[in-house]
Computed example of a mutant assay.
Amino acid sequence: MAAPPTVGDPPTRAGDDAMVITTSVREPERFAILYDRYFEEIYSYLSVRLGPEAAEDLAAETFLTAFRKRHTFAPERGAVRPWLYGIATNLVAGRRRTLARMLAAFRRAPSAREIEEGMEDRVTARLDAGRARGPLGMALAGLSKGDRDVLLLVALAGLTYDEVAKSLCIPYGTVSSRLNRARRKVRAALENVDPMNGDSDG
């Protein structure tokens, strides 16, 4: 079966990005070129996943992490853009784990019921369902982390299958199977939803 078509970065841009990051090991100020090229794109992706306030911090952290690890980037692995999305996606996972631990700590403190409820609201708002409400948010939250990451990298970031594979360091075939599974589950969850009000028929 033929692989789905990919668009991705133009070869010239991908090659230039790789050259910029390689050069930035010796000339750190060159890294600013990548920041200027991709910050808004990474911020937009994180904003949908976590909300604008958290996205601001994590977008900055994405580039700080990339700067610190720039000497480990291997041009033969592919373009810089998927690498940045991989870092951002890992930071999302880390943020969710931190929030979950905080929520668990509040739940263990019976005297902190009001604080717990407020924290639970914030955790819910930062799930990968983003700030989406209703059935779509529930459907996304119900996916496994791996399936959700693949679906959102394709749907929000517009990455190709090959770029997603490089971002998450998984085989190309795994991207396809995870995406198909995620789409089936989301489609099934939304099957009985009234598009006018977001409510299910049942």
Rank of each mutant, 00 (worst) to 15 (best):
M138I: 13
A129S: 14
G130F: 05
A74W: 01
E191D: 11
R30C: 03
T89S: 15
L153C: 08
S144L: 08
E41V: 06
R49P: 04
R81G: 02
T23C: 01
L58V: 09
G137H: 05
H71L: 09
R95L: 13
R49F: 05
A3W: 13
I42D: 03
F39T: 06
R187L: 13
A2S: 11
G8T: 07
T89F: 00
A18R: 11
D16W: 13
E114M: 07
R95F: 05
R97S: 09
A66I: 01
S111F: 02
L156R: 13
R108H: 05
M196D: 13
V193I: 12
Y45L: 12
E40T: 10
D199R: 15
R122Y: 06
D147Q: 13
Y38R: 03
P171I: 10
R131P: 03
D199K: 15
F67G: 12
L159P: 01
S144W: 01
A125E: 12
D36T: 08
V80Y: 09
G86D: 03
M102E: 12
R37W: 07
D194V: 05
P75G: 02
I42V: 15
L103E: 09
G202H: 04
Y38D: 10
G146C: 01
I21P: 07
V48D: 11
R68P: 08
R133Y: 00
I115M: 10
I21F: 04
H71K: 13
A54F: 03
E40A: 14
G146M: 00
R101P: 02
G78H: 07
A189Q: 04
D36R: 15
V25W: 01
L127Y: 01
P28H: 03
A105F: 05
S24N: 02
A100L: 06
V48Q: 12
K69L: 11
A112Q: 10
E40K: 11
L34S: 06
L151R: 10
K145R: 15
E41M: 09
A189H: 01
A109Q: 15
V154W: 04
G142Y: 00
T22M: 03
R126L: 11
E76K: 09
G78K: 07
R107D: 09
T160R: 10
L152R: 13
A139P: 05
T65C: 11
E114D: 08
R187T: 12
T62H: 00
G158V: 12
R122N: 11
A59S: 14
L140P: 06
V186N: 03
R184H: 09
T72E: 14
A182R: 02
E76A: 15
P171M: 07
Y172K: 11
T12P: 02
F67S: 14
P5Q: 14
G158F: 10
T124Y: 02
E76W: 04
M196T: 12
A3V: 10
S200Y: 03
V154R: 15
V175H: 02
I170T: 05
S24L: 06
G173E: 09
S200V: 11
L136D: 08
A3L: 15
R13Y: 04
M119Q: 08
G142D: 08
A165D: 14
R187M: 11
K166N: 07
D57Y: 02
Y161G: 03
L64S: 14
P171Y: 05
D147M: 09
I21T: 08
